[in-house]
């Protein structure tokens, strides 16, 4: 039996354009929907599969405002059986703060009788791209960590984790539990929520906790966007009649056989 804690983060679902807030400290998400990072969708899937395969529980955690309950409910609808909201202003938390808050929850749950054999996080969040929360968490918990995992299986007290190697192959790790893994998408296809899953998710109580200690913050001074370029597009035509102009272009670029 393996209990899994999977950590997710509510992020804006960006389309083709980004607008910043007036103070340039964040993305203006007032007109955007929200989601979790792609790597975290894969992490949730791996958490649910691992819990099912081993007869354990998959618990989802996020640090954020009440709005982030939407993302917790989605993970519950997919098959997580418990959810923790660390109530905090996510923008005030740097990667070390987030790791510390998650580590506190892991320790508190352990003290209360629920230990996590695996803690899964995304390899990097699609908004802040810090690439370090999982590693920091492993140091705080004194557990081994593997980054960039795309598939995993648990057997006895050990996890076998696979991820890409620099030469395009696959690297295999065998690590004693408990461990921290950072997940990259590509190894599993995240499931879609079922109607009964959604109904069940509504009834699960969300465990709300308040972090102890003040966050240090990320240190961000401001965000900048590259200057907007006026469109320079040359329209070669409409419909199949443009094929001749396209092939002229392909020939001028020297990419035809």
């Amino acid at each position: 039996m393996a209990n899994v804690l999977v950590c997710i983060k509510r992020v804006p679902d960006l389309g083709g354009e980004i607008r910043l807030t007036a103070d340039a400290m964040g993305v203006d998400d007032s007109s955007l929907g929200h989601t979790v990072s792609p790597h975290e969708e894969a992490a949730v899937e791996l958490a649910i599969q691992t819990a099912k395969d081993t007869g354990g529980e998959a618990t989802v955690l996020t640090l954020g405002s009440e709005d982030a309950v939407e993302q917790l409910r989605n993970a519950l609808a997919l098959g997580c059986t418990g959810a923790v909201l660390v109530e905090a202003d996510a923008a005030a938390y740097g990667p070390a703060d987030v790791a510390a808050a998650v580590a506190d929850v892991v320790r508190d749950h352990e003290a209360a009788g629920t230990s996590y054999d695996l803690v899964l996080v995304g390899n990097d969040a699609s908004d802040t791209g810090d690439f370090q929360v999982g590693v920091r968490l492993s140091y705080l918990l004194d557990r081994p960590v593997v980054a960039g995992v795309s598939t995993l299986s648990v057997d006895g007290g050990e996890v076998t984790a696979r991820g890409g190697s620099p030469d395009g192959g696959t690297e295999v790790y065998q690590v004693a539990l408990p461990a921290v893994l950072t997940v990259m998408e590509g190894g599993v296809e995240p499931r879609y929520p079922s109607i009964p899953g959604r109904m069940k998710a509504k009834k699960i109580a969300i465990d709300r906790v308040t972090p102890t200690g003040e966050p240090q913050g990320s240190g961000r001074r401001r965000l900048t966007l590259p200057p907007a370029q006026p469109s320079q597009v040359t329209v070669l035509g409409e419909g199949p009649e443009a094929a001749g102009a396209v092939v002229d272009l392909l020939e001028s670029l020297g990419v035809t056989r």
Binding site: E238, G239, P240, G244, V247
Partner: peptide, 19 residues
């Protein structure tokens, strides 16, 4: 830099044929 407006399922076969 360049664009063709229309359905790829009509345009790509026409490009292939022209190539």
């Amino acid at each position: 830099h360049y664009a063709v407006i229309g359905d790829l399922h009509e345009i790509v076969p026409a490009i292939n044929e022209e190539l």
